[in-house]
Design a protein around this nucleic acid. Structure first.
Length: 545
RNA sequence: GGCCUGUUGGUGAAGUGGUUCAACACACCGCCCUCUCAAGGCGGCAUUCACGGGUUCAAAUCCCGUACAGGCUACCA
């Protein structure tokens, strides 16, 4: 039996590797065009980290005139969930991330497919077979228990841990030994026969991390698992070569597997792609930093932001902000431009852990919302309420124009109001404008808190109020009434002689404000009064007990 | 244990040998601004870049060591 027959005996494939090598042509792209790919696993909710990497993949490919495709890595059948692929597609599209190529809801788009690893079994096997023919891989019959035992001894002896060299007993098996074992029905997996020497160091340049040096891999890592599917490492080498990936952009946690990947690419005779290891999203957990965790951190799920009412655009802007440290400054100078107009570079990407910063997200969200027109705020608030606050939804629907006017207070102007940070905030900002929601738990009276005095002030003011007054007239009338009741109409005057007055125009307007809204902090009083109208203002006065 | 990466203010971070090297942003504090907030304006907030050595005329920036943090060390990605 020659090695080719031997490989056929161990691994049955429909085609051999030459077939696949010919099937997928080299990409014909201009110099410098990057081919990138997020490669998420369909394991359920979409992780913030997946969004982050996808964002970078997409932007780097677009900017360089390249291709960004979506590959699904579902070789871990235990963790794969049914609707996983759709969840990924849906979530990413919400954040303005689409693909030139890859798996879509309608199936594959592109000639390098299938783009789902579980459908590429024959391809991986064909290349594993190639390695066996060339004596660069071998079947391993060791059980999990045996391997654990080896590791224990190695740990005790303070030797390198793993399956390698003299510990790799299956690599010494002869063809005859193997054939006999297989014929006896023994199960096996395929492992790489590494020829690396850890005393040799590989000089390497990562696009983000820069120059680095790592020892050669000498571990005989698994490449085909007992279920016939490849391990991540092997699938990475085969897929990224066949699919023509030029830049592998992935989390920093992969940096320490790089030696294995280099070993694999070399053994397969593939040219190594460029790598960009971006920092992991970290969170501060009582003073220590750790990776964002699906279990502990609700925001690990990109849907979390939707539930908070943070606009998708704001999250994308946050992604851009953490992708390149100089993005934010540029954006502040170019607010009218899209983040896509900024030139992102690997060099400016963070290394060594990026802190997840919710305050920053809120700030970005607040600024983003402030740029929206009142009608847009209305539409989005309505959409949010539809899902999370049916009472508010009903009111917004019933009073569409009124609600839009509320959102328009101090909005469509050069320096718009920024009090809505998320659509989840809307109720807390507008509830007092709706009679249906106006059941104040307390009135935030200021200096003047005697109810008789308050009634006197409000009634005196209401006598003079005219909804048709413009703002200046409105304000001078207010001053007039305030003055007649013993309040200082000018703040400066009051500050200089506080003892001459009951209070200032500020105290006076606070009375009106709190009467109408129960709150001492609200947007522009003039606008609020116009929206209420005189009748409702009188009603609000009567609510006070 | 071994290997890899990182460590600049309350936070995220700019800056990779010297001419503003400690930017910018968030947070916080103070003042100002014809009604409160918000926003905006102005100002404050690291004599110092984890620590200890070394190289150099010159280091946050280069080298060595230490400490700390994170990651990997799976038939998981």
């Amino acid at each position: 039996m020659d090695r080719r027959e031997y490989a056929d005996f161990l691994i049955k494939t429909k085609h051999d590797y030459e077939y696949y090598l010919n099937k997928y042509p080299k990409r014909n792209l201009p110099e410098g065009a990057m081919v990138t790919r997020p490669a998420p696993s369909p394991t359920g909710m979409v992780h913030l980290g997946t969004l982050y990497v996808s964002f970078i993949d997409r932007i780097m490919a677009s900017q360089s005139g390249g291709v960004c495709y979506l590959r699904i890595e579902d070789t871990d059948t235990k963790r794969t969930v049914d609707d996983g692929i759709n969840m990924i597609l849906n979530s990413l599209s919400k954040f303005d991330i689409s693909f030139d190529e890859g798996r879509t809801k309608e199936g594959d788009n592109g000639i390098y497919g299938p783009y789902v690893q579980s459908e590429r079994g024959d391809i991986y096997k064909a290349f594993a077979k190639k390695l066996i023919i060339e004596d660069k891989a071998y079947p391993c019959f060791c059980s999990k228990e045996e391997e654990d035992h080896i590791k224990e001894i190695q740990a005790k002896n303070k030797e390198q841990i793993g399956y390698y060299g003299r510990w790799a007993k299956c690599r010494k098996l002869t063809m005859e030994d193997v054939i006999e074992k297989v014929n006896n029905g023994e199960k096996y997996i395929i492992k790489l026969k590494s020829r690396g020497n850890p005393n040799h160091r590989i000089k390497f340049r990562d696009e983000v991390v820069g120059k680095m040096e790592i020892p050669e891999n000498n571990l005989d890592i698994a490449i085909i698992k007992s279920d016939g599917l490849p391990t991540y490492h092997f699938a990475h080498a085969v897929d990224d070569h066949l699919m023509g990936t030029t830049h592998v952009i992935r989390g920093e946690e992969w940096l320490s597997s790089l030696d294995k990947h280099i070993d694999l690419f070399n053994n397969l005779g593939f040219e190594l792609p460029k790598y960009a290891h971006i920092s992991t999203l970290m969170v501060d957990d009582n003073g220590t930093r750790r990776k964002i965790s699906k279990r502990k951190d609700p925001w690990a799920d990109v849907n979390y932001f939707h539930k908070q009412g943070i606009p998708n655009e704001a999250l994308v802007l946050y992604m851009a902000t953490i992708t390149n440290s100089n993005f934010e400054a540029w954006y502040n100078q170019n607010k009218d431009k899209s983040y896509k107009d900024f030139e992102f570079t690997f060099r400016k990407m963070p290394k060594g852990g990026t802190m997840y910063d919710y305050d920053k997200i809120i700030n970005i969200s607040k600024n983003f919302i402030s740029t929206l027109k009142a009608s847009e705020v209305y539409d989005r608030a309505l959409e949010y309420a539809k899902e999370y606050d049916s009472e508010l939804f009903d009111l917004l629907t019933k009073y569409k124009d009124y609600s839009t006017s509320i959102f328009n207070i101090e909005r469509e102007q050069k320096k718009p109001r920024k009090d809505i940070a998320t659509f989840g905030d809307v109720r807390g900002q507008v509830w007092y404008m709706f009679d249906e929601l106006f059941t104040p738990s307390e009135y935030e009276w200021g200096k003047i808190n005697d109810l008789d005095e308050i009634r006197k002030i409000v009634n005196a003011y209401l006598d003079k109020y005219d909804a048709n007054d413009d703002k200046d007239t409105w304000f001078s009338k207010m001053k007039e009434v305030a003055s007649s009741l013993g309040f200082a109409s000018e703040m400066k005057e009051y500050r200089e002689n506080p003892d001459n007055y009951k209070g200032s125009i500020a105290d006076f307007s606070t009375v009106l404000r709190v009467t109408l809204t129960s709150k001492s902090m609200t947007p522009d009083l003039y606008e609020i009064m116009r929206l209420f109208g005189k009748e409702r203002m009188i009603e609000r006065l009567n609510v006070i007990k």
